[in-house]
């Protein structure tokens, strides 16, 4: 190809891209947002903001860049886990089956890689073999585990765990709780009690309350975040199962309404399948 034809093609491409957004392109943007579980309200609002931010002859590329900036501005900055004064307790909560237990195993694995010795605490004394699940992870990872029989009092497990961590120099204390629907009042009260017991055992604990959300969820994740946050004061989110093609747009609503940062992203079932949340990477996947 001659230099001239190349230039001509590039110019043609540039000119083509300078055509203003058509209504079908607007619709494409809308579909993109809705299919990513952003929710109808925030999708509408974001597109309105986008419209206001664009010149009359804006291109699709400019629109996407602005949209990215608008969405990015909704996500709060995250500082990772802030743990002081060991042993620090981290409480993992969430509705049934979102990925709490597995996320603990993954975080424990990466903490051990960093030279720490976390304690895995099976305070899910409700679900069949929930304790065994975490215990098997502990064995695999070569880390200490503490738990009680099924039907035991989760607050008691947590109490014992803090003693054990203090006496054996284990840190942090990763506490697995039973999955529960945020609509079940007494089960939410049970979590409050666990939190209270931790605070009584050692002032300032738990230092983190992490809500685990399933990336495959839709708008209900927002209701989950609201109630868990109101009940317990959630300090951060873990987005599990993000190896799924789901795009988890509900995170924007949650971030906007309660300024909750996402701290980690789970991307598979293996111990190493976890990484710190990156807003930029999240947006790459969300807008893809």
């Amino acid at each position: 190809m001659s230099w001239a034809t190349k230039l001509k093609q590039t110019l043609a491409g540039l000119i083509a891209r300078r055509t203003p957004l058509s209504s079908s392109q607007w619709e494409e943007l809308q579909v993109l947002l809705l299919e990513g579980d952003l929710g109808p309200e925030l999708a509408e609002q974001s597109l309105e903001n986008l419209k206001a931010s664009l010149e009359r002859d804006a291109t699709l590329e400019m629109a996407l860049a602005n949209l990215r900036a608008i969405l990015l501005s909704l996500l709060p900055a995250d500082e990772g886990l802030r743990l002081v004064n060991p042993p620090a307790a981290i409480l993992f909560v969430g509705v049934n089956g979102t990925g709490k237990t597995t996320s603990i195993a993954k975080l424990a694995h990466s903490m051990r890689e960093q030279g720490r010795r976390p304690l895995l605490v099976g305070a899910d004394t409700f679900r069949a073999a929930a304790g065994e699940q975490l215990q098997q992870w502990a064995t695999r990872l070569g880390l200490p585990f503490i738990g009680h029989e099924i039907g035991g009092d989760p607050s008691a497990v947590v109490f014992d765990a803090m003693e054990m961590a203090a006496s054996r120099g284990l840190d942090p204390v990763l506490i697995d709780t039973a999955g529960r629907q945020h609509t079940t009042h007494n089960l939410m009260e049970e979590l409050k009690k666990i939190k209270r017991v931790l605070g009584k055992k050692k002032a300032g604990e738990p230092q983190e309350v992490l809500l685990v959300l399933d990336a495959n969820a839709g708008m209900n994740a927002i209701a989950q975040a609201q109630v868990f946050h109101e009940t317990l004061g959630v300090t951060g989110l873990i987005l599990a199962k993000f190896d799924s093609p789901a795009r988890a747009g509900f995170l924007f609503s949650i971030a906007r309404q309660w300024q909750l940062p996402t701290k980690f992203v789970g991307v598979g079932e293996k111990a190493e399948n976890i990484r710190p949340f990156s807003a930029v990477e999240f947006l790459d996947q969300f807008l893809s």
Binding site: R127, A128, A129, A130, E132, Q133, L134, Q135, Q136, W137, R140, I150, E269
Partner: peptide, 16 residues
């Protein structure tokens, strides 16, 4: 056969 203690979970429920 993949998730840790998945079989234990089923066995427990079956026994119950």
């Amino acid at each position: 056969l993949k998730r840790p203690a998945a079989l234990d979970q089923l066995k427990y429920l079956a026994k119950q």
